[in-house]
Structure formats: C-alpha cells, structure tokens
C-alpha cells in the first residue's frame, strides 16, 4: 500500500516537473547523450536562456 502510494506520488511529481519545464535540462542531457554524444552539452544556465528565448518567438498565449 505504502509503496503504491509512493509510486503514485513519484509519478505525480514527475508529471508536475515535466509540465512546468523544471526537468527540461535533464531531458535535454538525455537527448544530447543519445543523439549528439560527440559534442559538449550546454551548461544549465545557457540551455535555459536559449530555451526561453526560442519559446517566445511564436504565438504562445491567446484570449
């Protein structure tokens, strides 16, 4: 019972982190290791800056 609750909470937390973009850098590192292993990944601060800039280049919010 306790482990199932734990598992549920863990999954909720994972969902919240992914939804908010809190774990974006970790996912980026995974993607980078899988697809571009030869190059050096960006630092956390640099990655975040780039992502934020790119995010607001298009229509993100409406009425």
């Amino acid at each position: 019972m306790a482990t199932r609750l734990n598992e549920l909470l863990r999954r909720c937390w994972k969902l919240v982190r992914e939804l908010s973009g809190d774990d974006a850098y970790e996912r980026y590192l995974l993607h980078h290791a899988a697809c571009h292993a030869e190059a050096e990944p960006l630092s956390r601060a640099k990655y975040f800056r780039q992502r934020e800039q790119a995010k607001w280049e298009g229509i993100r919010r409406c009425c």
């Binding site: 908010s20 850098y25 601060a45």
Partner: peptide, 8 residues
C-alpha cells in the same frame, strides 16, 4: 541568475 532553470 540565482538558480538557473529551477522553474518550480
């Protein structure tokens, strides 16, 4: 600057 990328 303080905690880069810590959205939550």
């Amino acid at each position: 600057n303080i905690r880069p990328g810590r959205v939550l």
